[in-house]
Computed example of a mutant assay.
Amino acid sequence: MSKSIFLLRHGQTVFNAQQRLQGHCNSKLTDLGQQQASAIGRSLKNKLANKSQWTIYSSPLGRAVQTAEIVAQQIGIDPSDIVQDPRLQEFCLGDWEQAYIPELKIMYPRLCEQKDWYLMAPNAESYYGVKDRIEDFLSDISVSDNSIVISHGLTGAVFRGVYVGMTYDEVFSQDLPQDAYFLLANDKISRIQCDIHSAMSLTV
Rank of each mutant, 00 (worst) to 15 (best):
M1E: 10
L8R: 12
R9A: 00
H10I: 01
H10A: 07
G11H: 05
V14N: 07
Q22H: 02
S27D: 02
T30L: 02
Q34G: 07
A39F: 05
A39H: 04
I40P: 02
G41S: 04
K47S: 08
K47Y: 06
L48V: 06
A49R: 13
A49N: 14
A49K: 15
N50P: 00
Q53G: 00
T55G: 09
T55L: 03
Y57E: 11
L61G: 10
G62R: 08
R63E: 04
A64Q: 03
T67F: 02
T67I: 04
E69W: 02
I70P: 04
Q73N: 14
Q74R: 12
I75D: 02
D81M: 13
Q84I: 05
L88E: 06
Q89Y: 11
Q89V: 05
E90L: 04
E90W: 03
G94A: 04
D95S: 12
W96H: 07
Y100A: 15
E103Y: 04
Y108W: 10
W117P: 08
N123I: 01
A124E: 05
Y127K: 11
Y128H: 15
Y128I: 12
G129E: 14
G129I: 02
G129R: 06
D132F: 12
I134H: 12
E135C: 13
L138H: 11
L138V: 08
V143A: 11
N146A: 09
I150Y: 09
S151C: 06
H152Q: 05
H152R: 07
H152V: 01
F159D: 11
R160Q: 11
V164Q: 12
V164T: 15
M166N: 10
T167C: 01
Y168K: 13
D169Q: 14
D169S: 13
E170H: 04
E170F: 03
F182Q: 08
L183Q: 13
N186H: 13
D187L: 04
D187E: 12
S190W: 08
I192S: 08
Q193F: 06
I196D: 01
I196E: 06
S198M: 14
A199C: 09
M200S: 10
T203D: 13
V204M: 12
